[in-house]
Amino acid sequence: MQILHTTKLDSQVYQDALAIRKAVFVQEQHVSLADEIDQNEAQACHFVGYLAQHPIATARLLPINPTTYHIQRVAIIRSQRGNHFGRQLFQALENYARRQKHFHLTLNAQDQAIGFYQRLGFHVTQRPGFMDAGIPHHEMQKQLV
């Protein structure tokens, strides 16, 4: 999988990220488009994984402070789930974060995905679970070395 990233909202990479997010979150999980596309689009770095030049995976990094990124909008198209593309995407996110000197990662995991994130080294924080777009979530963190 080839992984590209951008901060430019007029780029094809960003458009590909949006297409994946709409397919996964809006169509599959019934998240409203107004909730999916938010005020943080321009502040985030958007990542897209391509397989044979087709966009199949996405995530974005939102800077929280000088050493922390919040990972959001993690999605793999349905036909490619279970093929370890999520692990490859996270390796790219972590490599980028290290290069930017951001050594702390946070994310809000859908409860059904907590095991996936735990296998990547994230742990659930003490913060109580919460609902986001009608889906149960828990905050998770990882410290990079």
Rank of each mutant, 00 (worst) to 15 (best):
Q29F: 02
V24R: 00
V48P: 01
L61Q: 02
V24G: 05
A23Q: 05
Q29C: 08
N40F: 15
H46W: 13
A34H: 13
G49Y: 01
A59C: 12
Q29K: 03
Y50T: 01
D38Y: 09
I37N: 01
E28I: 09
E41H: 02
Q27L: 10
I56A: 07
K22F: 06
H30Q: 04
F47T: 11
D35A: 12
Q53L: 08
G49L: 11
T58E: 00
R60Y: 05
L51M: 13
T58Y: 12
I56N: 05
E36I: 00
Q27P: 02
V31K: 01
D38I: 00
E36V: 03
F47C: 11
H46F: 14
H46K: 12
C45Y: 11
G49P: 07
V26F: 04
L51F: 12
K22I: 04
S32P: 10
F25R: 03
E28A: 07
F47M: 12
L61G: 08
S32L: 00
V31C: 12
Y50V: 08
A34P: 08
A57E: 00
F25G: 04
A59F: 14
E28N: 00
V31P: 04
D35M: 11
H46G: 10
A23D: 09
C45W: 10
Q27M: 04
C45F: 08
N40H: 15
I56D: 05
L51Q: 14
C45P: 09
E36D: 04
P63R: 13
E41Y: 08
T58D: 02
K22L: 06
A59V: 01
E36A: 03
A57W: 01
N40K: 15
L61I: 10
A57F: 11
Q43Y: 15
Q39N: 03
H54C: 07
F47V: 13
Q29G: 07
P63M: 15
V31T: 07
V26T: 09
A44G: 06
D38C: 08
H46Q: 14
A42S: 15
Y50P: 05
D38V: 06
T58N: 03
Q39C: 03
V26K: 00
V26P: 04
